[in-house]
Design a protein around this nucleic acid. Structure first.
Length: 447
RNA sequence: GGCCCUAUCGUCUAACGGUUAGGACGCCGGCUUUUCAAGCCGAUAAUCGGAGUUCGAUUCUCCGUAGGGCUACCA
């Protein structure tokens, strides 16, 4: 009985790429689906490009996503093991030290280690792509280490995967063509072959591999924008996998339960930010008021934190697709919920059909008494029931229609061209505050 | 160039030989609201091309075509 072990092996050379997150997700979900083990291994064999601070960031990022590893470690910790096996290969004559000019500086001579390529055709079975055949003679005696103490990626990966008993190597399709050379190393070492699954690539709108240079690809950027981890996970999962049904929303737990390689796509998928946003909105709406408020506070100085009532959460869930967007709304079109707006006399009267200030004044005055009768904390529906008949009553407004009442009312309350409807505003502001604002609007009209 | 992979609405995808080719996101239209958002309803929209196999191909095979990936002493 074999247990499933998977791994994600990012290198600490920059911000976490969402492609890495998706690979990690599939590895995680497959491991957990099989009650197996999920590992994170930091691949730091490229000492030139590595920066230690990225390592911590990688761990933090995975934790944010909920992709918690059973074990995490750093590849360079295995340096002695790498050297041991490198020496063994050379001793056994399966690899050799080659003295040649350095690629970086042709003036100096280096001693790289090359694998003696048996020149065979490698056939392996990919869980997603099926049987793949590859003639490895064209690879030649490729380099597997810069020196005995400096193994290259392909060598280190093979050794570490084998030592960690990795059963399934699930990774991006960009490494599909490199798999045969890893298999060659594996066979030279006498290791058994894991099961491979090469995930289709995440593409940009121009159908090219998503690149750091031209696109927003780092997880941190999406997090800072106020994308929920649940949304990112859900969206990434569906980008290249589907349950075979019309279902669209999956929590990590549900993915663990439902995932299988049958539902994995073969072709690359374009990353669609708009769809991500819509998925994010779904998960924002799932949040409790408390959790919603917590997310809303992220990144804000204490002085900017606002008292967010249930009614305001409802409003934000209806309108915002990210938390950053929600924050901006609170500062902009929804700022009237927290502070009195400044009114522009010309905006107060409805524009079509053109209405005179005196008519607007009469309309607003007519609202005062009925509003006074309403209790604080009343629902938007109840406000509507009380106010709508007044808007409908022609004598109240001449012949401007409902808008002749509703527009000035909404504007008096919000001071914004765009805002929630007046009933909701009154419900949130309270009748007292609403009346006060209407009075101020009336005063302006008197001038 | 060589090698490898891929191919259904604009996008993500369903249909594992027989469907009016389904869903979601977006777009467009309507309802609601004389703002905006949301919500509801509706519309437009796809099997890359050509040969086979088959009574029947989106589905299987081959050939084109197109796209992508890899071709490091990066990972």
């Amino acid at each position: 009985m074999s247990t499933v072990t998977t791994r994600i092996a990012p290198s600490p050379t920059g911000q976490m790429h969402i492609g890495t997150v998706r690979s990690a997700l599939f590895n995680y979900v497959w491991a957990k689906h099989n009650k197996g083990t999920f590992l994170i291994r930091i691949e730091d064999t490229d000492t030139e490009r590595n920066r230690p601070e990225w390592t911590q960031m990688i761990w933090d990022d995975f934790e944010w996503c909920g992709l918690i590893p059973d074990k995490k470690y750093i590849q360079s910790e295995h340096a002695p093991r790498h050297r041991e096996l490198l020496e063994r290969l050379v001793q056994e004559g399966k690899a050799y030290v080659s003295h040649e000019p350095s690629k970086n500086d042709p003036n100096i001579e280096v001693a790289v280690i090359r694998l003696k390529n048996p020149g065979k055709t490698v056939v392996f079975n990919d869980l997603i792509h099926g049987e793949i055949t590859f003639d490895t003679t064209e690879l030649g005696d490729f380099v597997i280490a810069r020196s005995m103490d400096d193994p290259l990626y392909h060598f280190a990966v093979v050794v570490d995967d084998a030592d960690a008993h990795v059963s399934h190597v699930i990774r991006g399709e960009d490494i599909l063509s490199s798999t045969p050379r890893q298999i060659l190393i594996q066979e030279a070492l006498g290791f058994s072959r894991p099961i491979y699954a090469h995930l289709p690539l995440i593409l940009s709108a121009d159908r090219k591999k998503l690149s750091k240079r031209h696109h927003v690809v780092s997880l941190a950027d999406y997090r800072d924008e106020g994308i929920l981890p649940e949304a990112m996970i859900n969206y990434l999962a569906l980008l290249g996998w589907n349950p075979g049904t019309d279902e669209e929303h999956f929590s990590l737990e549900q993915l663990i339960e439902r995932f299988s390689f049958d539902g994995v796509q073969k072709s690359g998928a374009i990353f669609d930010r708009t769809k991500l946003l819509s998925v994010n909105q779904h998960w924002m709406r799932e949040l409790s008021d408390d959790d919603f408020s917590k997310h809303l506070d992220v990144g804000l100085p204490i002085s900017h934190k606002l008292p967010i009532s249930h009614k305001i959460v409802v409003l934000l869930k209806e309108r915002a697709k990210t938390f950053k967007e929600a924050q901006e709304m609170l500062l902009g079109e929804l700022s009237c919920l927290f502070s009195e707006p400044t009114l522009d006399r010309n905006q107060l009267s409805i524009k079509k059909p053109k209405e005179r200030p005196s008519m607007t004044k009469t309309a607003l005055e007519g609202l005062l008494e009925p509003l006074k009768a309403l209790p604080e904390g009343i629902s938007a529906e109840a406000v509507k029931e009380a106010v709508m008949p007044l808007a409908d009553a022609e004598e109240a407004v001449g012949k401007g229609g409902r808008g002749a009442v509703l527009w000035p009312l909404r504007y008096a309350l919000s001071g914004q061209e765009r805002s929630p409807d007046p009933f909701t505003l009154i419900s949130i502001l309270g009748t007292k505050e609403a009346i006060s604002r209407i009075r101020k609007a009336i005063a302006i009209l008197k001038k």
